[in-house]
């Protein structure tokens, strides 16, 4: 008793722990809110989605709860033309948009990095498309692309002599939705690439210039190889993020004309609204599967090129 007076005066559990154990307790307490939130809104509902994807569940009809159907939902998906159309448009949209976001983003990053008097202005302006609500951009461009009253067809007609109908033509509607995604997110990509550009030493370019390199050879032999890890991570991030896009096509075209601009997320939304919870869950699993494949390919590419640097 008298050997451990300290423990007797403070008989709480925490004081009896070793120093190392105390740190574990503190770490757990600090992580609890974040982990709790993610479990509650991501991990646990995801397990439920996985469970539902093998069940037929429409709360309006299946009063006894979900009915196990095995791979039934996935068979139905493979025969559903809307699902196929939405997957193919989503892939075209995401890959096309990401390519142009990276290419134009690199160009804009050079502009933001150039030494000129209005540089501060360009850096403030570049944030604006990223920062405004997607809903505002989607509806604004819907109006601007309008065949009768829109400014874009009118400007194209009067300035370039191009006569184009946008949102009522399936292919042009796809092009229009993709362009808005490029307009909205290129600035974000540019900002990330700008940080990468600033990390490349000037001496590399000077040495190349002495050896007779011009702007193009510097771009392809210095800038792009040096930025490759960032280009890959940013590209993967944009692909994964845009695979789940919902608000842009939903508000800009409503998925139309027909189903030409319906993305996977909107198909899930439609099925959920029709209370086909089981079917919606199986399409969700397909979307998660696509995201996972992209993620694995991205990690592979990143490791391959990052190690070689």
């Amino acid at each position: 008793m008298s050997a451990r007076p300290h423990a007797d005066r403070r008989p709480n559990l925490f004081a009896r722990l070793s120093l190392r154990q105390r740190f574990y307790v503190i770490a757990i307490l600090l992580l609890l809110p974040a982990v709790g939130l993610r479990v509650f809104t991501a991990f646990y509902p995801f397990l439920q989605t996985a469970y539902l994807s093998f069940h037929r569940y429409n709360p309006a009809f299946d009063h006894g709860g979900p009915v196990f159907v095995g791979l039934g939902n996935f068979q139905r998906m493979s025969a559903d033309p809307v699902v196929q159309a939405s997957i193919s448009f989503t892939l075209v949209f995401v890959l096309g948009a990401t390519f142009f976001q990276l290419a134009l983003g690199l160009a804009v990053a050079h502009l933001l990095n150039a030494a000129f008097r209005l540089r501060f202005l360009s850096r403030a302006l570049v944030l604006i498309p990223w920062a405004i609500p997607m809903a505002v951009a989607a509806l604004g461009f819907r109006w601007m692309f309008d065949d009768q009253f829109g400014m874009i067809p009118d400007l194209l007609r009067s300035l370039a002599g191009v006569e184009m109908r946008w949102l009522i033509d399936p292919n042009n509607a796809k092009l229009a939705v993709t362009s808005v995604a490029v307009w909205k997110s290129t600035p974000f990509v540019a900002l990330v690439l700008l940080a990468g550009l600033q990390g490349i030493g000037r001496d590399l370019y000077e040495a190349a210039r002495v050896d007779g390199a011009n702007a193009w050879t510097s771009l392809f032999y210095i800038t792009i190889p040096m930025l490759l890890p960032i280009l890959i991570t940013t590209g993967m991030f944009m692909i994964v993020w845009q695979l789940a896009v919902f608000d842009l096509p939903f508000l800009m075209t409503g998925g139309g004309p027909g189903y030409s601009t319906t993305v996977i997320a909107q198909k899930i939304y439609l099925e959920s609204n029709s209370l086909n919870y089981g079917y919606a869950a199986s399409i969700s699993m397909a979307l998660v599967g696509i995201v996972a494949v992209v993620g694995v390919v991205g990690l592979y590419l990143f490791r391959r090129f990052d190690v070689s640097m």
């Binding site: 809104t41 995801f46 989605t49 789940a244 919902f246 998660v288």
Partner: peptide, 18 residues
């Protein structure tokens, strides 16, 4: 890793259970 990778989970994919 689990916290960071969960960013890839599409919002819409867990909407119904949520």
């Amino acid at each position: 890793l689990a916290l960071i990778l969960s960013v890839a989970l599409p919002q819409i994919a867990v909407l119904v259970p949520m």
